[in-house]
Simulated scan of single mutants.
Amino acid sequence: MKRISRTAIALTAGGALALGGVAAAVPVLAGAGPGEPGGPPAAGQTVDPRRPGVGHGMGQGLQRGPGDGTCLNPPASSGTVTAAQKTTLAQVAEEEKLANDLYTAFAARYDARVFDQIARAETHHLYAVRTLLDRYGVTDPTEGKSAGQFASANVKAEYDRLLAQGSANEKAALQVGVTAEKAQIAALQKSAQDVKAADVEHVYERLIATSQRHLAAFQAWAN
């Protein structure tokens, strides 16, 4: 019963978020055939209730929806970005790298597929932000940095703290995912304030939407 309940929670979260403004990912997901990532199970295929699927709004769906960069790709046109907003973009890049490195480390340690799936999505998030950094001539603070290495001492300290916390056990790692996504959503919402450039606004909106999905997924797995 608990496994079924967990699925119901994730399905509810994914459906609510889809209605809340991330329907742009649906056409991409709709192309997935039976048995394909992001698509319905093939005939006779066993479905794990904890398997991140289309209805969950994360996991496999992230590979073919908002997580694959398709919906995250900034519009071709650029706008006006202030010096402060450029600094914020660089900070967002480091935060996206932090999430990717953190979940990748947990994926190597634990069996919960949610870490591997969301780590892949974070890679696409970082790619989208890097596109903006290049477009607006902002130095990429993540360039050349290996896993767990960051230009900012504060980000490095946060990564180390969360990694240590999540290294206790799988449940602790899932809770770290919840904590990290909540912090990321709050930071992105603040970063998006007063942004006038359509391409930057577009990426922030998609990052917030997918982070909300990540949060729902981690919460479902943790319960």
Rank of each mutant, 00 (worst) to 15 (best):
S5P: 04
A10M: 05
L11T: 07
A13L: 03
A25Y: 02
A32P: 13
G33H: 01
P40W: 04
A43K: 11
R51C: 02
V54S: 15
H56A: 04
G57N: 03
G59S: 00
L62P: 03
R64S: 08
R64A: 11
G67D: 02
D68M: 05
T70E: 05
C71K: 00
N73R: 12
V81E: 11
K86R: 13
T88G: 08
L89N: 13
V92L: 12
D101C: 00
L102H: 02
Y103N: 15
Y103E: 07
R109H: 04
R109K: 12
Y110I: 11
A112C: 09
V114W: 03
A119R: 15
A121C: 07
E122A: 11
A128K: 04
D140I: 13
D140K: 05
G144M: 14
G144K: 08
A153E: 15
V155H: 06
V155D: 10
Y159A: 05
L163V: 11
A164V: 12
A173I: 05
A173W: 02
Q175W: 10
A180F: 00
Q184S: 07
A186R: 04
A186W: 00
A187M: 13
Q189D: 01
K190T: 14
K196M: 02
V203G: 09
V203N: 08
E205G: 10
A209P: 00
A209T: 00
T210D: 03
H214P: 12
A217Q: 00
